[in-house]
Write a protein that binds this DNA or RNA. Structure first.
Length: 599
RNA sequence: GAGGGUGUAGCGAAGUUGGUUAUCGCGACGGCCUGUCACGCCGUAGACCGCGGGUUCGAGUCCCGUCAUCCUCGCCA
């Protein structure tokens, strides 16, 4: 019935301008608003491109007027009519199409709409649960439409840039051998081979390295990755990365390429000028100065070391921790008009610190040029030194965390730093990128007492540590790099190992003997026997980056069909039970946990 | 595995030290309206206050349990 209408479709609701005055058009869209003034109707017709006002004039046939009256919100309709300029007094400067309107000659209802579970507005008010259940309605909102467009533009811009640099986009399989990299694998049972499973990739890591062996010296892929771990606001169990790998490169080549890429993309997509080179911090400096390996550099507020001063003070709590080799750091909260440093506020900062293991948050203030309150009385003899070290000024507050663990001390104060940044309105608008480099290659595994790869087992140790890998794993730094944006880790990469023997050494340090390495990663080791090129790569997280660009705090806002934090998709109700026949074919039977027994 | 927040009409919220009829805005439905554009005006319907139990003369409000959801720790490059 509507083929004729579709075939003569000439425009979209956002495209009309005064230049179209007099044109006969067909507009397809959804009824966004319907204002009935008795014998004149105004219908705001909406599609992906915008909104156009359709008018049913008082001279319209009764039939058309009645039809207009019967339209309900979100009906999908086709309007045939003539574009006309609005009289000057009726121009709506707020609308991109506000200079024109379409005088309707014919309206066809293409489909009706059931009662809406929530209203479709620029920013949907409904709680997320509902938005996800009726995602198709939520996607009609301007906010979601804008974010989907931003995501598209962002990915397209990256693709175009990389294509212009001779990269091939190559797909790698999503059903692979299980080679857990740290996270839990999602498994897919094999029908043909009872007891065997495919795994969904946590990243295309091994395949992209093998592509390098295959001579595909510049590869990228917009890759879906899967990790069966608990979700967070910036973490989903499936997510999308721009996976990238290059042969014959050093770290500098990768960093330079990424800087060029994002300078290009931010200009093209956001019209935002990034610096040609991003700031660099070593992991150790980032931790020591900001307490985090993903610091938000839109504000400064550095941490300072305090253990040496604490040792000389009369504050036994600090002295004991310092003497035992623990870490004591301080941060200065600058005097602010936003927040009074009340007991209550200090407690809220302390709560933020305690989440990351701090036992408490000590404090003192600078009043009339000297230290007062909190633990200041223990530092009477060190006053000058404290002021000098912290650079605290009049009205500022100095906050301290002491902890046996350097990491926990850093992490706790980082939480305080981030809260201060927000509360004291210190965060500058814009985008602050930074590279975090020189990560440790190994970290102690508390469970086994051995070592585990801090990043993954395929990263190259830095040259100067090659002789001391086994004797001193703790101090080995890798050719590893993270890209940080506004406090989020948005990319991570490394130069890879391409030498079988070196790779085996790393495996051994991580507790994987040669036999197990052969069993699990034999195909990689085999590939490395055939003249592998030196190579390295990186993988920017697309969801997180678009989230930051869209000024959102949850990646749900930039994913068309996200799962919730309980790993459920409220729209299609995944995961679901399956037909027993399916299980039978897959040679599976389900053992339910005792308290959740099914019928 | 753990901690915290939230749950009141279709949606978003208010609801005081426990008190009689649970408010408000939007939406829906009906009516009026010739220029609106978040149109306006008049009217109507719509709530097992997440669910279960308890305390009480009386519970949306207090207690216990439970479910859902969000945030976070652990976990996750």
């Amino acid at each position: 019935m509507s083929e004729e209408l579709f075939s003569q479709r000439t425009t979209t609701c956002g495209a009309l301008t005064k230049a179209d005055d007099g044109a006969r058009v067909v507009l397809n869209g959804w009824v966004h608003r319907n204002r009935n003034h008795g014998s004149v109707h105004f219908i705001n017709l909406r599609d992906r491109y915008g909104i156009t006002q359709v008018v049913v004039d008082d001279d319209a046939p009764a039939e058309l007027a009645a039809l207009a009256d019967s339209l309900r919100l979100e009906y999908c309709i086709a309007v045939t009519g003539v574009v006309r300029r609005r009289p000057d007094s009726m121009i709506n400067a707020e609308m991109s199409t506000g200079e024109i309107e379409v005088k309707a000659e014919k309206i066809e209802i293409l489909s009706r709409c059931a009662p809406l579970p929530f209203q479709i507005e620029e920013t949907t008010q409904a709680r997320e649960e509902l938005r996800l259940k009726y995602r198709y309605l939520d996607l009609r909102s301007k906010g979601m439409q804008d974010r989907m467009r931003l995501r598209h533009d962002f990915i397209l811009s990256m693709r175009n840039f990389l294509a212009s640099r001779d990269f091939y986009e190559i797909e790698t399989p999503t059903m692979i051998r299980s080679t857990p990299e740290g996270a839990r694998d999602f498994l897919v049972p094999s029908r043909h081979y009872p007891g065997k499973f495919y795994a969904l990739p946590q990243s295309p890591q091994l395949f992209k390295q093998i592509l390098m062996v295959g001579g595909m010296d510049k590869y990228f892929q917009v890759a879906r990755c899967y990790r069966d771990e608990d979700a967070r606001g910036d973490r989903q169990l499936e997510f999308t990365q721009l996976d990238l790998e290059m042969s014959f490169v050093t770290r500098e080549d990768i960093l330079a390429l990424m800087e060029e890429l994002f300078v290009h993309v931010f200009k093209e997509v956001m019209d935002y000028d990034l610096p040609a080179n991003f700031r660099r911090l070593t992991y150790e400096d980032a931790m020591n100065t900001y307490g985090s390996d993903k610091p938000d550099l839109r504000f400064d507020l550095p941490l300072v070391d305090f253990a040496d001063i604490a040792l000389k003070s009369s504050f036994t709590t600090f002295k004991q921790i310092a003497e035992a080799g623990g870490t004591i750091k301080a941060i200065v909260a600058p005097a602010s008009e936003e927040v009074a440093f009340s007991r209550k506020y200090i407690t809220s900062l302390e709560d933020a610190a305690k989440v990351y293991g701090a036992q408490g948050l000590a404090w003192m203030k600078v009043e009339n040029g000297s230290l007062s309150g909190g633990i200041s009385k223990f530092f009477e003899d060190q006053e000058e030194q404290v002021l000098q070290r912290t650079q605290a000024g009049e009205g500022d507050m100095i906050l301290f965390v002491a902890h046996q663990s350097w990491r926990r001390c850093c992490a706790s104060l980082s939480a305080v730093r981030n809260k201060l940044g927000r509360d004291l309105m210190l965060i500058k608008p814009g985008f602050e990128f930074a590279w975090i480099i020189d990560f440790p290659l190994f970290e102690a595994d508390e469970e086994s007492g051995g070592w585990t790869a801090a990043h993954h087992m395929f990263s190259m140790p830095q040259q100067q540590y090659l002789d001391t890998l086994e004797s001193d794993p703790a101090s080995v730094k890798g050719d590893l790099y993270d890209l940080v944006l506004n406090g989020y880790e948005v990319a991570s990469g490394s130069i890879r190992i391409h030498d079988v023997e070196l790779q085996k050494r790393i495996f051994r340090i991580c507790g994987i003997d040669d036999a197990e390495a052969e069993e699990r990663f034999g195909f990689l080791l085999e590939a490395f026997r055939y003249s592998p090129p030196p190579h390295g790569g990186i993988a920017p997280g697309i969801d997180r980056m678009v989230m930051v660009l869209a000024e959102q705090s949850s990646i749900h806002e930039v994913i068309a069909f996200p799962k919730n934090t309980a790993a459920i998709s409220p729209m299609d109700n995944a995961p679901s039970e399956v037909d027993p026949k399916q299980l039978e074919e897959l040679h599976l039977s389900v053992i339910y946990p005792p308290e959740k027994e099914q019928e």
